[in-house]
């Protein structure tokens, strides 16, 4: 069956979102291989192949670091690789997650520009994750448990988004939000507060116009 272009793009984007957001929800969830491929691609772009090879050789990975875009792999392998990159480079893991968020957002924009059309601004785009993207993801993968993204428009043009998941990927999420606002040419100040407790990762993002 041939879907109209827009719908097809939406489905594909949703599949990506699964890769990105799936790992927030289920303990032993297997993420789409494209995320791992993109993570390694980013690492290679900035560190070079040899360094990445060494990192992958040293890390303890079920997969031995062999990922294909069409496979599915345990979510914790992603965290392990990011940690290994951090250990190797001496960079904080959180900053790496943020950077990976930037990278993935760019992949979305490059691959599926049509999906962003019709969105008035970054807030509109963020609001559509819960109401449009996740709705479609659930149609494709009924069993998936997704993180929650509660959004709220506050007085004075401020915007609040609360991330709630079983996976510690709130910094990755921060990277996505930053890129999203930049994409819509919105100069903002983003404040993240971490409310993580009892193995439940919760973060509140407060976005306001840059002074």
């Amino acid at each position: 069956m041939q879907y109209p272009c827009g719908i097809r793009v939406l489905f594909t984007i949703c599949a990506h979102s699964v890769l990105v957001f799936e790992c927030f929800g289920i303990a032993e969830v297997r993420m789409k291989g494209i995320v791992f491929v993109e993570l390694i691609r980013m690492a290679e772009a900035v560190l070079g192949e040899e360094v990445v090879d060494e990192i992958l050789d040293e890390a303890v990975l079920e997969t031995d670091g062999a990922f294909s875009a069409v496979g599915n792999y345990p979510c914790k392998e992603l965290l392990t690789i990011v940690e290994a990159v951090g250990a190797r480079t001496g960079l904080p893991v959180e900053a790496l997650h943020v950077q990976f968020g930037h990278w993935m957002f760019d992949r979305f924009v490059d691959g599926y520009p049509a999906f962003f059309e019709g969105k008035a601004d970054g807030f509109h785009m963020l609001e559509s994750i819960e109401d449009e993207v996740h709705v479609e993801v659930r149609k494709l993968y009924p069993e998936v448990e997704l993180p929650r993204f509660d959004t709220e428009r506050l007085p004075d043009g401020r915007f609040k988004m609360v991330y709630d998941s079983e996976r510690p990927l709130h910094h990755f999420c921060k990277g996505l939000i930053e890129s999203c606002m930049a994409h819509f040419d919105q100069a903002v100040h983003l404040d993240m507060r971490d409310y993580t407790a009892n193995g439940r990762y919760t973060a509140e993002f407060l976005i306001q116009k840059a002074a």
Partner: peptide, 20 residues
């Protein structure tokens, strides 16, 4: 941040990379 230095790719590929 990661990416301050960008190394150039080598022309040869290691056995480990090939296997992966």
């Amino acid at each position: 941040f990661l990416g301050d230095t960008i190394p150039t790719p080598t022309t040869e590929v290691s056995r480990r990379r090939y296997d992966r």
